[in-house]
Computed example of a mutant assay.
Amino acid sequence: MRWRSYVAVGDSFTEGLDDAYPDGSFRGWADLVATRLAAEAGPDFRYANLAIRGRTFPNVVAEQVPAALAMKPDLVSFAAGGNDVLRRTFDPDDLVGRFDEVVGRLRADGADVVLFRFADVMARLPGQRLIAPRVALLNRAVGETAERHGATLVDLYADDTYLNPMLWSTDRLHLSPAGHRRVAGQVLAGLGLGCDEEWLLVPPNPAPTPWLSARTADLRWAGQHLAPWIKRRLTGRSSGDTLAPKRPSLAPLILTDPVDPAGG
């Protein structure tokens, strides 16, 4: 087996929001990928997940990348920048340059690296005119960086399946359990491994919502999700300020998850 250690680096996307274990903690695509790698590698496999929700690209680079490099893993997944494109301080030139530098450091240390072009979430969120070009710029930079450094690219943006709202949670920003399973399947495919075919199955699109019901849902979403997000931005706070990584060091993965990691 090629990979006996895996470190996941990033923000809420990699932490696993909103794919909950029975105890309320979050699983997500990275845990699912780790279960498949562990099933293949055996008891020597080690996994760490350093991702914390709300982290911006500079936070990830300063806090998580040095820790990941110190662990000297065989495989690293790196997904950052999604929170940055939502902020008025977004500096595309700085982020693109630093993205390439960070991936170069990870590759130079001998690790295989997985990168992501982010799925299109803006169809369900306000600010599309401002944010969508930033996402396109970031995705283009990720693709170019992956090619330049020989990283594995998982192109979620090219998959129109993610336009299905059933792959997203009620906050319209984070993946649902079905969305996380699909991402895990695509990561494993990029690594040349298989998974349970059900991971790639997509729930049917919901029936069209009547106009009044849709506007009521929008207002409810704004009160439950948008308003708290705006308040955090105004007060300089983050949803992950008091949190630590869920798997801060490389450790064995106990395969107790009911989802079949090997498939078939």
Score class of each variant (00 low, 15 high):
Gly236Cys: 01
Ser25Ile: 11
Glu147Ile: 06
Pro261Thr: 08
Trp221Leu: 00
Asp160Cys: 15
Asp109Asn: 13
Ala146Asp: 03
Glu198Arg: 13
Asp120Trp: 14
Ala244Gln: 14
Arg87Pro: 11
Asp31Ile: 07
Phe13Gln: 06
Asp93His: 05
Gly16Asp: 05
Asp91Trp: 06
Tyr162Gly: 07
Asn164Pro: 10
Ala48Gly: 03
Asp155Gly: 12
Gly24Tyr: 10
Tyr162Asp: 04
Leu75Lys: 05
Asp93Tyr: 01
Met71Cys: 10
Asp44Arg: 13
Leu255Arg: 12
Thr14Leu: 00
Val103Ser: 02
Leu32Tyr: 06
Val114Cys: 06
Ala51Leu: 01
Asp257Leu: 08
Leu253His: 06
Leu234Gln: 08
Arg88Ala: 15
Leu200Asn: 01
Leu243Lys: 14
Asp19Gly: 11
Ala217Cys: 06
Leu163Lys: 15
Ser239Cys: 13
Asn139Lys: 07
Asp93Val: 02
Phe26Leu: 15
Arg36Lys: 12
Pro208His: 00
Leu115Val: 04
Thr216Arg: 14
Pro165Gln: 05
Glu63Leu: 10
Ala158Glu: 09
Val76Cys: 11
His174Pro: 00
Gly143Ala: 09
Glu198Gln: 11
Ile131Gly: 03
Thr56Val: 14
Asn205Lys: 15
Asp91Gly: 05
Val187Tyr: 03
Leu37Thr: 07
Ala68Gly: 06
Met71Ser: 14
Leu253Tyr: 09
Ala251Leu: 09
Ala38Asn: 10
Gly150Asp: 02
Met166Thr: 13
Thr145Gln: 04
Gly16Phe: 04
Ile52His: 02
Asp112Val: 09
Leu234His: 08
Pro203His: 03
Tyr47Arg: 04
Ser5Phe: 10
Val61Ile: 08
Gly97Tyr: 07
Arg182Glu: 01
Gly223Arg: 08
Ala41Leu: 10
Thr14Phe: 00
Arg233Cys: 11
Trp211Cys: 08
Ala119Lys: 10
Thr89Ile: 14
Val183Pro: 06
Lys72Ala: 15
Gly10Trp: 00
Pro165Ile: 05
Phe90Asn: 05
Pro210Ala: 07
Arg124Cys: 02
Ser176Leu: 01
Leu191Lys: 09
Val85Arg: 02
Met166Leu: 11
Asp93Thr: 04
Gly236Ala: 02
Ala244Phe: 13
Arg53Met: 02
Gly104His: 01
Ala132Ser: 14
Glu144Lys: 10
Tyr47Lys: 05
Asp218Val: 09
Val7Ile: 07
Arg98Tyr: 02
Phe116His: 08
Gly150Met: 01
Val121Tyr: 09
Met71Ala: 15
Ala184Met: 05
Asp84Lys: 01
Leu219Met: 13
Arg53Ser: 06
Asp241Ile: 13
Pro248Leu: 10
Asn139Leu: 08
Gly264Pro: 15
Ala189Thr: 12
Asp109Leu: 12
Asp109Phe: 11
Thr216Ser: 14
Trp168Gln: 01
Pro204Met: 04
Val76Ser: 03
